[in-house]
Design a protein around this nucleic acid. Structure first.
Lengths: 158, 158
DNA sequence: CTTCATGCAAAACATTTGCAGCTGG
DNA sequence: CCAGCTGCAAATGTTTTGCATGAAG
Protein backbone atom coordinates (compact mmCIF):
# COMPACT_ATOMS: atom_id res chain seq x y z
CA UNK A 1 0.00 0.00 0.00
CA UNK A 2 1.48 3.26 -1.09
CA UNK A 3 -0.10 6.00 0.92
CA UNK A 4 2.97 8.06 1.55
CA UNK A 5 2.40 9.97 -1.68
CA UNK A 6 3.95 13.38 -1.82
CA UNK A 7 4.33 15.63 1.15
CA UNK A 8 2.64 18.55 -0.49
CA UNK A 9 -0.57 16.57 -0.70
CA UNK A 10 -0.56 15.18 2.78
CA UNK A 11 0.26 18.53 4.27
CA UNK A 12 -2.97 19.90 2.92
CA UNK A 13 -5.18 17.30 4.55
CA UNK A 14 -7.44 18.28 7.36
CA UNK A 15 -6.23 16.98 10.71
CA UNK A 16 -7.75 13.51 11.20
CA UNK A 17 -9.29 14.40 14.55
CA UNK A 18 -10.96 17.49 13.15
CA UNK A 19 -12.14 15.59 10.11
CA UNK A 20 -13.62 12.91 12.34
CA UNK A 21 -15.48 15.55 14.33
CA UNK A 22 -16.82 17.05 11.13
CA UNK A 23 -18.19 13.72 10.00
CA UNK A 24 -19.68 13.01 13.40
CA UNK A 25 -21.46 16.36 13.45
CA UNK A 26 -22.78 15.69 9.98
CA UNK A 27 -24.29 12.43 11.22
CA UNK A 28 -25.76 14.05 14.33
CA UNK A 29 -27.14 16.96 12.36
CA UNK A 30 -29.01 14.53 10.13
CA UNK A 31 -30.26 12.46 13.05
CA UNK A 32 -28.28 9.37 12.25
CA UNK A 33 -27.07 7.24 15.08
CA UNK A 34 -23.47 6.94 15.99
CA UNK A 35 -22.77 3.27 16.43
CA UNK A 36 -19.42 1.66 17.14
CA UNK A 37 -19.33 0.29 13.61
CA UNK A 38 -19.98 3.68 12.08
CA UNK A 39 -17.43 5.28 14.33
CA UNK A 40 -14.86 2.73 13.24
CA UNK A 41 -15.56 3.42 9.57
CA UNK A 42 -15.37 7.17 10.11
CA UNK A 43 -12.06 6.78 11.86
CA UNK A 44 -10.57 4.86 8.96
CA UNK A 45 -11.83 7.43 6.49
CA UNK A 46 -10.52 10.32 8.57
CA UNK A 47 -7.12 8.75 9.05
CA UNK A 48 -6.59 7.39 5.53
CA UNK A 49 -4.34 9.44 3.39
CA UNK A 50 -5.23 7.32 0.42
CA UNK A 51 -8.42 6.18 -1.21
CA UNK A 52 -9.39 2.89 0.41
CA UNK A 53 -11.80 0.42 -1.12
CA UNK A 54 -14.84 -0.96 0.71
CA UNK A 55 -12.94 -4.17 1.24
CA UNK A 56 -9.96 -2.32 2.68
CA UNK A 57 -12.15 -0.31 5.00
CA UNK A 58 -13.85 -3.49 6.07
CA UNK A 59 -10.67 -5.33 6.97
CA UNK A 60 -9.31 -2.34 8.84
CA UNK A 61 -12.57 -1.83 10.69
CA UNK A 62 -12.58 -5.46 11.76
CA UNK A 63 -9.32 -4.93 13.63
CA UNK A 64 -11.16 -2.58 15.94
CA UNK A 65 -14.55 -4.14 15.75
CA UNK A 66 -14.30 -7.73 14.54
CA UNK A 67 -17.97 -8.47 13.99
CA UNK A 68 -18.54 -5.65 11.52
CA UNK A 69 -19.96 -6.91 8.27
CA UNK A 70 -19.08 -5.76 4.80
CA UNK A 71 -22.72 -4.83 4.26
CA UNK A 72 -22.50 -2.38 7.12
CA UNK A 73 -19.43 -0.81 5.61
CA UNK A 74 -21.29 -0.35 2.36
CA UNK A 75 -24.32 1.04 4.14
CA UNK A 76 -22.12 3.49 6.01
CA UNK A 77 -20.14 4.80 3.08
CA UNK A 78 -23.34 5.11 1.05
CA UNK A 79 -24.87 7.11 3.87
CA UNK A 80 -21.81 9.31 4.10
CA UNK A 81 -21.81 9.84 0.37
CA UNK A 82 -25.43 10.92 0.53
CA UNK A 83 -24.77 13.52 3.17
CA UNK A 84 -21.72 14.70 1.25
CA UNK A 85 -19.08 13.52 3.68
CA UNK A 86 -17.33 11.12 1.38
CA UNK A 87 -16.37 11.13 -2.28
CA UNK A 88 -16.91 7.89 -4.12
CA UNK A 89 -14.57 7.12 -6.97
CA UNK A 90 -16.22 4.43 -9.04
CA UNK A 91 -14.30 2.43 -11.58
CA UNK A 92 -16.06 0.25 -14.07
CA UNK A 93 -14.44 -2.98 -13.10
CA UNK A 94 -12.58 -3.12 -9.81
CA UNK A 95 -14.21 -1.88 -6.66
CA UNK A 96 -14.90 1.74 -5.81
CA UNK A 97 -12.53 3.79 -3.73
CA UNK A 98 -13.52 6.32 -1.11
CA UNK A 99 -12.10 9.65 -0.02
CA UNK A 100 -13.21 10.91 3.37
CA UNK A 101 -10.78 13.78 3.47
CA UNK A 102 -11.82 15.76 0.46
CA UNK A 103 -15.46 14.86 -0.08
CA UNK A 104 -15.83 17.24 -3.00
CA UNK A 105 -14.86 16.67 -6.63
CA UNK A 106 -11.19 17.05 -7.36
CA UNK A 107 -8.76 15.63 -9.91
CA UNK A 108 -6.96 12.35 -9.41
CA UNK A 109 -3.87 10.81 -10.88
CA UNK A 110 -4.06 7.04 -10.89
CA UNK A 111 -1.21 4.63 -11.46
CA UNK A 112 -2.39 1.80 -13.67
CA UNK A 113 0.34 -0.47 -12.31
CA UNK A 114 0.30 -0.12 -8.53
CA UNK A 115 -3.11 1.56 -8.28
CA UNK A 116 -1.82 4.37 -6.15
CA UNK A 117 -4.07 7.40 -6.35
CA UNK A 118 -2.80 10.94 -5.90
CA UNK A 119 -4.46 14.33 -5.72
CA UNK A 120 -2.59 16.78 -7.91
CA UNK A 121 -2.88 20.54 -7.84
CA UNK A 122 -5.08 21.89 -10.55
CA UNK A 123 -6.94 25.11 -10.76
CA UNK A 124 -8.83 26.27 -13.82
CA UNK A 125 -11.46 23.63 -13.20
CA UNK A 126 -14.25 25.86 -11.99
CA UNK A 127 -13.59 28.04 -14.99
CA UNK A 128 -13.91 24.99 -17.16
CA UNK A 129 -17.17 24.14 -15.45
CA UNK A 130 -18.51 27.61 -16.19
CA UNK A 131 -17.39 27.32 -19.79
CA UNK A 132 -19.32 24.06 -20.14
CA UNK A 133 -22.41 25.63 -18.62
CA UNK A 134 -22.25 28.50 -21.04
CA UNK A 135 -21.70 26.34 -24.08
CA UNK A 136 -24.16 23.53 -23.39
CA UNK A 137 -26.84 25.08 -21.22
CA UNK A 138 -26.35 22.33 -18.66
CA UNK A 139 -26.50 23.14 -14.99
CA UNK A 140 -23.25 21.53 -13.86
CA UNK A 141 -23.46 19.98 -10.41
CA UNK A 142 -20.47 17.79 -10.31
CA UNK A 143 -17.49 16.60 -12.26
CA UNK A 144 -14.82 14.02 -12.41
CA UNK A 145 -11.31 14.42 -13.72
CA UNK A 146 -8.96 11.48 -13.60
CA UNK A 147 -5.61 11.01 -15.24
CA UNK A 148 -4.29 7.51 -15.76
CA UNK A 149 -0.65 6.72 -16.14
CA UNK A 150 2.44 5.26 -14.55
CA UNK A 151 3.91 6.68 -11.38
CA UNK A 152 7.60 7.49 -11.01
CA UNK A 153 8.28 4.42 -8.84
CA UNK A 154 6.69 2.03 -11.30
CA UNK A 155 8.51 3.68 -14.20
CA UNK A 156 11.82 3.01 -12.49
CA UNK A 157 11.02 -0.67 -12.16
CA UNK A 158 10.68 -1.10 -15.90
CA UNK B 1 -33.44 8.13 -26.45
CA UNK B 2 -31.99 11.55 -26.94
CA UNK B 3 -29.36 11.25 -29.59
CA UNK B 4 -30.16 14.38 -31.50
CA UNK B 5 -27.86 16.34 -29.19
CA UNK B 6 -26.56 19.55 -30.63
CA UNK B 7 -25.81 20.06 -34.27
CA UNK B 8 -22.30 21.25 -33.66
CA UNK B 9 -21.40 17.89 -32.13
CA UNK B 10 -23.01 15.70 -34.72
CA UNK B 11 -21.50 17.69 -37.55
CA UNK B 12 -18.08 16.75 -36.35
CA UNK B 13 -18.69 13.01 -36.44
CA UNK B 14 -16.96 10.92 -39.00
CA UNK B 15 -19.31 9.67 -41.67
CA UNK B 16 -20.69 6.31 -40.48
CA UNK B 17 -19.58 4.46 -43.60
CA UNK B 18 -16.06 5.77 -43.31
CA UNK B 19 -15.98 5.01 -39.61
CA UNK B 20 -17.16 1.47 -40.30
CA UNK B 21 -14.39 1.03 -42.85
CA UNK B 22 -11.84 2.30 -40.35
CA UNK B 23 -12.96 -0.21 -37.77
CA UNK B 24 -12.97 -3.02 -40.30
CA UNK B 25 -9.42 -2.20 -41.40
CA UNK B 26 -8.33 -2.15 -37.79
CA UNK B 27 -9.70 -5.66 -37.35
CA UNK B 28 -8.10 -6.90 -40.55
CA UNK B 29 -4.80 -5.28 -39.72
CA UNK B 30 -4.73 -7.16 -36.42
CA UNK B 31 -5.75 -10.47 -38.03
CA UNK B 32 -9.13 -10.67 -36.40
CA UNK B 33 -11.95 -12.26 -38.29
CA UNK B 34 -14.88 -10.33 -39.57
CA UNK B 35 -17.93 -12.30 -38.61
CA UNK B 36 -21.54 -11.27 -39.17
CA UNK B 37 -21.92 -10.63 -35.43
CA UNK B 38 -18.89 -8.40 -35.31
CA UNK B 39 -19.99 -6.58 -38.41
CA UNK B 40 -23.37 -5.93 -36.83
CA UNK B 41 -21.76 -4.53 -33.68
CA UNK B 42 -19.44 -2.32 -35.70
CA UNK B 43 -22.36 -0.99 -37.68
CA UNK B 44 -24.21 0.02 -34.54
CA UNK B 45 -21.13 1.71 -33.14
CA UNK B 46 -20.45 3.54 -36.38
CA UNK B 47 -24.01 4.73 -36.74
CA UNK B 48 -24.70 5.67 -33.11
CA UNK B 49 -24.51 9.34 -32.39
CA UNK B 50 -24.82 8.60 -28.70
CA UNK B 51 -23.05 6.34 -26.26
CA UNK B 52 -24.91 3.03 -26.24
CA UNK B 53 -24.61 0.46 -23.47
CA UNK B 54 -23.70 -3.17 -24.08
CA UNK B 55 -27.35 -4.05 -23.57
CA UNK B 56 -28.46 -1.46 -26.11
CA UNK B 57 -25.93 -2.65 -28.63
CA UNK B 58 -27.08 -6.19 -28.05
CA UNK B 59 -30.75 -5.49 -28.64
CA UNK B 60 -30.00 -3.48 -31.76
CA UNK B 61 -27.66 -6.12 -33.09
CA UNK B 62 -30.31 -8.77 -32.60
CA UNK B 63 -32.59 -6.98 -35.04
CA UNK B 64 -30.05 -7.72 -37.77
CA UNK B 65 -28.69 -10.92 -36.39
CA UNK B 66 -31.11 -12.47 -33.92
CA UNK B 67 -28.91 -15.21 -32.53
CA UNK B 68 -26.16 -12.88 -31.34
CA UNK B 69 -25.46 -13.33 -27.67
CA UNK B 70 -24.69 -10.64 -25.15
CA UNK B 71 -21.39 -12.37 -24.42
CA UNK B 72 -20.34 -11.86 -28.01
CA UNK B 73 -21.21 -8.20 -27.80
CA UNK B 74 -19.01 -7.90 -24.75
CA UNK B 75 -16.22 -9.82 -26.42
CA UNK B 76 -16.45 -7.57 -29.44
CA UNK B 77 -16.45 -4.25 -27.63
CA UNK B 78 -13.62 -5.44 -25.42
CA UNK B 79 -11.65 -6.39 -28.50
CA UNK B 80 -12.36 -3.05 -30.10
CA UNK B 81 -11.34 -1.25 -26.95
CA UNK B 82 -8.07 -3.14 -26.94
CA UNK B 83 -7.22 -2.13 -30.47
CA UNK B 84 -8.23 1.44 -29.69
CA UNK B 85 -11.35 1.56 -31.84
CA UNK B 86 -13.83 2.20 -29.09
CA UNK B 87 -13.85 4.33 -25.96
CA UNK B 88 -15.38 2.72 -22.91
CA UNK B 89 -17.06 4.99 -20.43
CA UNK B 90 -17.41 3.03 -17.22
CA UNK B 91 -19.68 4.18 -14.44
CA UNK B 92 -19.44 2.65 -11.03
CA UNK B 93 -22.96 1.34 -10.89
CA UNK B 94 -24.98 1.19 -14.09
CA UNK B 95 -23.52 -0.39 -17.18
CA UNK B 96 -20.71 1.03 -19.27
CA UNK B 97 -21.36 3.07 -22.35
CA UNK B 98 -19.36 2.89 -25.56
CA UNK B 99 -18.28 5.46 -28.10
CA UNK B 100 -17.23 4.13 -31.47
CA UNK B 101 -17.00 7.51 -33.13
CA UNK B 102 -14.37 9.17 -31.04
CA UNK B 103 -12.32 6.34 -29.60
CA UNK B 104 -9.90 8.65 -27.83
CA UNK B 105 -10.36 10.38 -24.48
CA UNK B 106 -12.52 13.46 -24.56
CA UNK B 107 -14.75 15.28 -22.11
CA UNK B 108 -18.38 14.39 -21.59
CA UNK B 109 -21.34 16.21 -20.18
CA UNK B 110 -23.83 13.81 -18.68
CA UNK B 111 -27.41 14.59 -17.69
CA UNK B 112 -28.20 12.93 -14.40
CA UNK B 113 -31.91 12.97 -15.19
CA UNK B 114 -32.28 11.66 -18.75
CA UNK B 115 -28.77 10.18 -19.04
CA UNK B 116 -28.07 11.92 -22.29
CA UNK B 117 -24.36 12.25 -22.92
CA UNK B 118 -22.87 15.09 -24.93
CA UNK B 119 -19.38 15.89 -26.13
CA UNK B 120 -18.56 19.52 -25.41
CA UNK B 121 -15.72 21.51 -26.89
CA UNK B 122 -12.80 21.84 -24.57
CA UNK B 123 -9.22 22.51 -25.28
CA UNK B 124 -6.58 23.11 -22.62
CA UNK B 125 -6.71 19.44 -21.73
CA UNK B 126 -3.41 18.38 -23.23
CA UNK B 127 -1.84 21.32 -21.46
CA UNK B 128 -3.39 20.09 -18.26
CA UNK B 129 -2.00 16.64 -18.93
CA UNK B 130 1.47 18.08 -19.37
CA UNK B 131 1.12 20.08 -16.20
CA UNK B 132 0.23 16.92 -14.28
CA UNK B 133 3.20 15.09 -15.74
CA UNK B 134 5.51 17.86 -14.71
CA UNK B 135 4.14 18.14 -11.19
CA UNK B 136 3.76 14.45 -10.32
CA UNK B 137 6.34 12.68 -12.43
CA UNK B 138 3.64 10.38 -13.78
CA UNK B 139 3.70 9.34 -17.38
CA UNK B 140 0.14 10.21 -18.34
CA UNK B 141 -1.39 7.80 -20.83
CA UNK B 142 -5.02 8.56 -20.59
CA UNK B 143 -7.57 10.69 -18.87
CA UNK B 144 -11.21 11.08 -18.19
CA UNK B 145 -13.16 14.28 -17.74
CA UNK B 146 -16.87 14.11 -17.12
CA UNK B 147 -19.24 16.80 -16.01
CA UNK B 148 -22.52 15.83 -14.40
CA UNK B 149 -25.53 18.06 -14.36
CA UNK B 150 -28.97 18.73 -15.76
CA UNK B 151 -29.52 19.37 -19.43
CA UNK B 152 -31.57 22.31 -20.72
CA UNK B 153 -34.57 20.12 -21.58
CA UNK B 154 -34.72 18.52 -18.16
CA UNK B 155 -34.31 21.88 -16.48
CA UNK B 156 -37.38 23.17 -18.32
CA UNK B 157 -39.46 20.27 -17.05
CA UNK B 158 -38.87 21.20 -13.43
C1' DC C 1 -39.33 1.64 24.67
C1' DT C 2 -39.25 2.31 19.84
C1' DT C 3 -36.88 3.32 16.04
C1' DC C 4 -33.12 2.64 13.58
C1' DA C 5 -28.80 -0.16 12.71
C1' DT C 6 -26.57 -4.58 12.28
C1' DG C 7 -25.32 -8.93 10.18
C1' DC C 8 -26.28 -12.72 7.81
C1' DA C 9 -27.49 -14.90 3.61
C1' DA C 10 -29.54 -14.38 -0.57
C1' DA C 11 -30.39 -11.46 -4.53
C1' DA C 12 -29.13 -8.47 -8.08
C1' DC C 13 -26.31 -6.67 -11.39
C1' DA C 14 -22.90 -6.27 -15.15
C1' DT C 15 -19.25 -8.63 -16.99
C1' DT C 16 -16.27 -12.72 -17.85
C1' DT C 17 -15.18 -17.42 -18.73
C1' DG C 18 -15.12 -22.53 -20.08
C1' DC C 19 -16.12 -25.21 -23.53
C1' DA C 20 -18.43 -27.87 -27.36
C1' DG C 21 -19.57 -26.92 -31.84
C1' DC C 22 -19.46 -23.89 -35.84
C1' DT C 23 -17.26 -21.07 -39.64
C1' DG C 24 -14.44 -17.51 -41.91
C1' DG C 25 -10.49 -17.09 -44.74
C1' DC D 1 -8.99 -27.31 -43.17
C1' DC D 2 -8.43 -25.50 -38.39
C1' DA D 3 -7.50 -21.44 -35.53
C1' DG D 4 -10.46 -18.42 -33.97
C1' DC D 5 -15.34 -17.23 -33.02
C1' DT D 6 -20.00 -18.06 -31.15
C1' DG D 7 -23.48 -19.03 -27.79
C1' DC D 8 -24.88 -21.06 -23.91
C1' DA D 9 -24.72 -21.47 -19.10
C1' DA D 10 -22.23 -21.17 -15.18
C1' DA D 11 -18.90 -18.37 -12.59
C1' DT D 12 -17.30 -14.01 -10.84
C1' DG D 13 -17.01 -9.94 -8.10
C1' DT D 14 -19.10 -5.99 -6.29
C1' DT D 15 -22.84 -3.93 -4.26
C1' DT D 16 -27.64 -4.18 -2.49
C1' DT D 17 -31.54 -6.03 0.02
C1' DG D 18 -34.82 -8.58 3.23
C1' DC D 19 -35.43 -9.63 7.54
C1' DA D 20 -34.83 -11.21 12.35
C1' DT D 21 -32.21 -9.63 16.17
C1' DG D 22 -29.95 -6.10 18.81
C1' DA D 23 -28.76 -1.63 20.61
C1' DA D 24 -28.81 3.75 20.57
C1' DG D 25 -31.05 7.59 22.25
Amino acid sequence: MFDAASLSESEKRTDPKIRLEQMLSALRKNDFRITPQRLAVLKILAVSKGHPSAEEIHSRVKEDFPTTSLATVYKTVTLLREIGEVLELGFGHESSRYDGNKPYPHPHVICIRCHRIMDPEIDALTEMSDEISRKTGFEILNHRLDFFGICPECREKE
